[in-house]
Measured scan of single mutants.
Amino acid sequence: MASQGTKRSYEQMETDGERQNATEIRASVGKMIDGIGRFYIQMCTELKLSDYEGRLIQNSLTIERMVLSAFDERRNKYLEEHPSAGKDPKKTGGPIYKRVDRKWMRELVLYDKEEIRRIWRQANNGDDATAGLTHMMIWHSNLNDTTYQRTRALVRTGMDPRMCSLMQGSTLPRRSGAAGAAVKGVGTMVMELIRMIKRGINDRNFWRGENGRKTRSAYERMCNILKGKFQTAAQRAMMDQVRESRNPGNAEIEDLIFLARSALILRGSVAHKSCLPACVYGPAVASGYDFEKEGYSLVGIDPFKLLQNSQVYSLIRPNENPAHKSQLVWMACNSAAFEDLRVLSFIRGTKVSPRGKLSTRGVQIASNENMDAMESSTLELRSRYWAIRTRSGGNTNQQRASAGQISVQPAFSVQRNLPFDKPTIMAAFTGNTEGRTSDMRAEIIRMMEGAKPEEMSFQGRGVFELSDERAANPIVPSFDMSNEGSYFFGDNAEEYDN
């Protein structure tokens, strides 16, 4: 993207840094990872977990959730003011799984939030270390993106479920800051804005008074975040219109849905970061690795190297396929839920299948599930090659597409044709070009129609051997075009429920 120079890199967003050079960025990201790792080690000690239990991804998720809940100030305040039966607002906890007599047992633990905050700050040299908290939120978000298709949420806001490739980060909490905003897809931002506008339509006082002023500035800020994701002048001009509207209503909703559809071809720039579970960072720190000293990046080879040398386990339900569970977590670790499966298959070195073909449910185990038949197995999170994460949407291309997802959002900077089903997408653009945004709409449609099938995206960008740390010898991959490109292809993934 041309304006790259004016933006802070995501590592800076990730670490609240002012302008830093590459070495400083690597050190501050490393410091953040160190903090998460030290916190995780301490929690495993508190909970008396064995090494194996500490490497269980379900335990990692519970521990991450506990610290996120302990620092969720708004919710904590709300819980104190609106006490609900049987919930102690000062405590947080969740299921911890232990191996007892050759069987997995679930144990519900409860801790004072104050105590968890103390352990977290102690692991982070006394700081609140917001960057580390956001990092864990993005890992949870990436896992949700890989596990669930947001059909219901899309339909509720009037969008087409086939636009799911635009929904990265749709389950990120509001408090995820600049680093969170960077990884949100165009569809996620559109959905947040539509929800806001709908509230304004239904509630006369939404934009009024002292609160209304705050609401208005939040609305304009979200519009600017979305505008910054678009790469064409016409899309940005249309966002200006939406932002400046005196009284946002149905016309703005129409414009936003139009823009979301246009992003299936004229893709937005959305950041991709490899955020790993805390149970990967903990053992690495415990083994003596100093992330701050060595430096770390979320968008280069580092996460690949770390996963190459990590042992992570997962509980497996009786009829689940461990290899499929591994694929789910591998995609989440690489922030690749909406990437082209052919690119992923090449990088991973084994075939990556669409969601609907995987015999696996989510990673988390519900409290009512029976533990008797639970097994555990090693997650295979290694890769054959590594590639640089991208934040450009890439230019655009036609490809055989599917009944489910009709476009992709690249996660890796790797040369390819970008699949999208042009006739299906263009069919949504018939007729409606009147109104105050008509010239911009016409211009956007013209650009979409001009998108050429034979153009290559990320020209000359390749993948790298894991021994090639400096990215000196790019390998331009070859793809098996007979395979499906979309992950949520004609899909039956479970729906995400809060």
Rank of each mutant, 00 (worst) to 15 (best):
Y487P: 11
G187M: 08
S60C: 00
K48S: 02
E434A: 04
D491R: 02
Y40P: 08
I116R: 12
V463S: 14
E192S: 12
G185Q: 02
R261C: 12
V408H: 06
N334L: 15
I301N: 01
M239K: 04
S3G: 09
T424M: 02
N368Y: 15
D255I: 08
T171V: 03
I316Y: 10
E434H: 08
A237R: 01
T134A: 14
R213A: 04
N309R: 00
N21Y: 05
A401L: 08
R348M: 08
P303F: 13
G490P: 11
N247Q: 01
G249R: 05
G435M: 11
E292V: 01
G404E: 00
T146P: 15
S392N: 08
W207P: 03
R204E: 12
G35E: 09
L315A: 03
S141N: 09
E244N: 15
R348I: 03
A233H: 15
V242A: 04
W330R: 03
L154F: 14
W120A: 02
K273C: 09
R152A: 11
N334P: 07
V67I: 03
A178F: 10
F412G: 15
C279I: 08
G187N: 04
E18K: 06
R213V: 07
R470P: 11
V190L: 02
D16T: 00
N334S: 14
S310V: 00
Q4D: 03
Y496V: 13
I406Q: 15
R117L: 00
A332R: 02
S287K: 10
P277C: 13
A427C: 04
M440Y: 15
E375M: 10
A234D: 15
L79W: 08
N397D: 14
N483T: 12
E80L: 00
A286D: 05
T62M: 11
E254Y: 12
H140Y: 13
M105H: 00
Y296F: 13
M43K: 02
K98Y: 14
N432H: 08
G300V: 06
R400E: 05
T424P: 01
G393D: 08
N202T: 02
Y313D: 04
E73F: 15
E495S: 00
N211Q: 15
V270N: 10
N76S: 04
M374V: 14
N417I: 03
M222I: 06
M163D: 03
K422G: 08
